[in-house]
């Protein structure tokens, strides 16, 4: 999958949940959204990106992806 595009998609999701004042809820929102709507190979690619030290994701998105990786 095109990682650049996945980063963009993930950050767009993060931009929606960022307005949630409770940070943990925001992270959970991103995580649940990606789990619900992303096909496994997309999830795998974004997890690999984070695990390999990718830095272009918003903080709450990176944390959500790390939850998915667990």
């Amino acid at each position: 999958m095109d990682t650049h595009n996945l980063i963009k998609m993930a950050n767009n999701i993060g931009a929606f949940f960022k307005s949630e004042p409770d940070r943990e809820l925001a992270i959970k929102g991103v995580e649940q959204h990606i789990r619900n709507f992303w096909e496994p190979r997309m999830r795998k690619a974004i997890v690999e990106y984070v695990q390999q030290g990718g830095t272009e994701l918003m903080d709450i998105v990176s944390e959500a992806v790390l939850h998915i990786a667990k």
Binding site: M1, D2, N36, E39, P40, M42
Partner: peptide
């Protein structure tokens, strides 16, 4: 039990060969 590919994701996966 896993969500599948959406149309734009299908295009991306086609280009990456999967």
């Amino acid at each position: 039990s896993e969500p599948g590919l959406r149309i734009p994701n299908m295009f991306g996966a086609a280009i990456d060969g999967s």
